[in-house]
Simulated assay, not measured.
Amino acid sequence: MRIVGIRRDGGVEVAALSEDGTAVTVLAPLEEFWADAAGHLAAQPSGEPLPVADVEVVPPVLPGARVVCIGLNYLKHVAEGSFREEDLPPYPTLFARWTASLTVDGAEVPVPPDEDGLDWEGEVMAYVGSPLVDATPEEALAAVVGYSTFNDLTARRAQKLTSQWILGKNGDRSGPLGPIVPAAEVGDLRDGLRVQTRVNGETVQDGRTDEMVYTVGDTLSLISRTFTLRPGDLLATGTPSGVGYARTPPWLLQPGDTVEVEVERLGVLRTTVVGNEYRKA
Score class of each variant (00 low, 15 high):
Pro49Gly: 08
Arg198Tyr: 13
Glu31Asn: 04
Ile166Arg: 03
Arg66Leu: 14
Glu138Tyr: 02
Leu41Lys: 01
Asp172Tyr: 02
Pro45Asp: 04
Ala281Arg: 13
Tyr245Ile: 15
Gly187Tyr: 02
Glu138Met: 00
Glu32Trp: 02
Ser224Phe: 09
Asp134Gln: 03
Gly217Val: 04
Gly178Met: 08
Gly171Val: 15
Gly187Cys: 03
Thr154Leu: 03
Gly168Thr: 12
Arg84Lys: 15
Leu118Tyr: 05
Thr22Gly: 05
Thr93Leu: 13
Asp9Ser: 14
Glu115Met: 13
Asp210His: 12
Leu222Arg: 08
Arg173Glu: 09
Ile180Thr: 03
Val111Trp: 08
Met1Arg: 06
Arg157Val: 12
Gly39Cys: 06
Val133Trp: 12
Ile223Ser: 00
Ser241Gln: 07
Pro176Trp: 05
Val145Glu: 01
Thr25Leu: 01
Leu193Pro: 09
Gln254Arg: 08
Gly11Trp: 04
Gly168Ala: 11
Leu189Arg: 04
Leu222Asn: 06
Pro231Lys: 01
Ala140His: 10
Asp114Ser: 09
Arg2Ala: 03
Trp165Pro: 03
Asn151Ser: 14
Lys169Ser: 04
Arg66Glu: 14
Trp120Thr: 10
Lys280Arg: 12
Pro176Ala: 07
Ala142Pro: 05
Val124Gln: 01
Thr22Arg: 11
Val52Met: 05
Gly5Asn: 07
Thr258Arg: 15
Gly146Gln: 05
Asp87Gln: 05
Ser46Leu: 00
Val109Met: 13
Gly175Asn: 04
Leu253Gly: 07
Tyr127Gln: 02
Val111Ser: 10
Glu277Asp: 15
Met125Arg: 04
